[in-house]
Design a protein around this nucleic acid. Sequence first.
DNA 1: GTCTATATAGCGATAGAC
DNA 2: GTCTATCGCTATATAGAC
Lengths: 206, 206
Amino acid sequence: MRAQAKKTEAAEVVDTRTRIVRATALFLQRQGYEGTSIKRIGAEAGVTPGSVYHFFPGGKEQLAAEALRYGAEEFTELLRSGLDSTPDPADAVAACALLLADSLRESEWTDGCPVAAAALETIGASPEIQRASDESLQHWQNLLANKLTAGGIAEAAARALACTIISTMEGAELLCRVSATDQPLRTAAEHLAQLVRLQERSADPE
Amino acid sequence: MRAQAKKTEAAEVVDTRTRIVRATALFLQRQGYEGTSIKRIGAEAGVTPGSVYHFFPGGKEQLAAEALRYGAEEFTELLRSGLDSTPDPADAVAACALLLADSLRESEWTDGCPVAAAALETIGASPEIQRASDESLQHWQNLLANKLTAGGIAEAAARALACTIISTMEGAELLCRVSATDQPLRTAAEHLAQLVRLQERSADPE
DNA sequence: GTCTATATAGCGATAGAC
DNA sequence: GTCTATCGCTATATAGAC
């Protein structure tokens, strides 16, 4: 059999550019932006710094912005998975928080949100990264809002709820990782479900 | 009282060590841990790097841990101010979120939580900073829980609520700073007040 | 497209004069 | 207690061979 890539093979083969983006996304989740060097990214991807700059002439900032969007897509999948797990919006939101807790514990709290750390480090300093962060956070809120409106919650209330859900999940993730426990996200799951049910009742006073 | 400092003076006089800690706390809020250098800290404090190491032989890590606690105390004061503004726990919690929004907007979203950025960058890499972060987050939760129990909420429910309140405020701060709007924190204030009232009713079914 | 080699700068940290 | 000077290292980024 040839050495070339077949999707069915166990060891996935990806092109160099993708390996670089993946390595960057991983380090952004673990150490943020400033703590991640092009040299280490290259080493993880199996290339030299020169190759990194070949694909990303805009340097570290361009690479980070693209890796941030790449990593954000993974969290989008987690959200989709949680939201599709049940038709009930409140239960679905709780499922998302619990999935996140499981995912974080799996990496022993090392691999977190690809947006949070990099965004906090570069606010007001890198418009490129800030824009990518903002778009990811907005996208997640849209996914949630769609589920909530589909469940009968009014548009405005759904958008507000979606915003608070992302806020709470982001903050609870911080507390989980710092304390190395899943309690904050499990508690958040409970409270967010209560909050969703509260808006359901407000909108539908039968 | 010492001879050098008088609190009533307009231009506050502080000793070198305190100036270094303050400068570090400021940079931690703006750029996080990795993006802050000893050289810049010294420049901001008006001393050379050598002086910084004179006061902090443990280096950047020791200095950051102490500055983090120093900066956390400022947020403690903001929390106290919000909690003391009204006897009603739900209103008090909302007041805290709104005070935070005002404080962030005042710096044009540049100066954020002294814990969040540094903690996310150093999880699993600096036990010293991680411990200081954890203690600050726990302390804030204790302040909130006391207010909630004083308002008639049962101990366990109050602790859980306090955890979610800090989670939501931390996450909403991230969303506010990234989007340069106060909407996430204002929405969070509303939702957190609803959540507190919900536990009040559960505990006291009159 | 990937490499070696390097330019330039900044980093954390230390030694020792004053 | 504060300084100057510097060590050893790493950073981002570039130039050019292959």
